[in-house]
Amino acid sequence: MGALGKPIILMIAMYLFLKFVLPYIPGSAPLPSSLIFLYLLLTAAGIVIFETLSGESKEAFWGPMQRFLTGENIGGLQALRYGILVLFPLLIGWQTYGSTASSDAPPAESRTIHPAPPGEYTGLSNPVPKTPENIMQGKGFYAAFCSPCHGGNFDGKGPAARGYNPPPANFADPTTIAMLQESYLFWRIKKGGVGLPIEGAPWKSAMPRWELELPDEWIWKIIMGEYDGAHQSPRTWE
């Protein structure tokens, strides 16, 4: 049983790791079941290749399986054999049902929160001098134009936010503006939701296209006010 037992334990351990350990490693996320299946398939393929490298290990690996399937001299395992022979077709039937039955779930939506900006909006630096007056003015514009959704506390919880899906960005969250450059914010504010590429699902965003209403200088000041108010700094490459 040694040549068979180890692979079985390895497969189970691999599954438990992928399903229950990997998602909790910081920076990771739950794996889709199709990916888990693929990884398990790769693991199984690796095991088969390893176990069949030599004639001897091949016999040690396949031999017990063949004896088990044909039911010759397996004694007490006979009941388990019948169990597996009954369960295997049922499992196949169940899987087929699962993959052909119509699902009640709406179409899955994958939306990229920070898609790549058009080339002309990369690497621009804020032309407005970072003075206390300009920051203060930016915060004033923010209060007037942005805070209804993005919140007076820069937390995305403004009074107008509740009905919007996707929700307005929370600037205090370290995974939003702290990860982005000022030129990225300039693009997002100027072009708004309708300026997003297809992976950003522009049809769902309520973000206004502010270039139609605000001069560029105000937008740069708003960016300054946002970073200052949310206690974040723009990402730089130095």
Binding site: L69, L85, F88, P89, I92, G93, Q95, T96, Y97, T100
Partner: peptide
């Protein structure tokens, strides 16, 4: 129809087992 597909798949799997053994 999913029930029918499931039944067909189970029968095919059963036949496969039979032939293999």
């Amino acid at each position: 129809s999913s029930y029918m597909y499931a039944a067909i798949a189970a029968v095919v799997a059963l036949g496969f087992q039979f032939v293999l053994i």
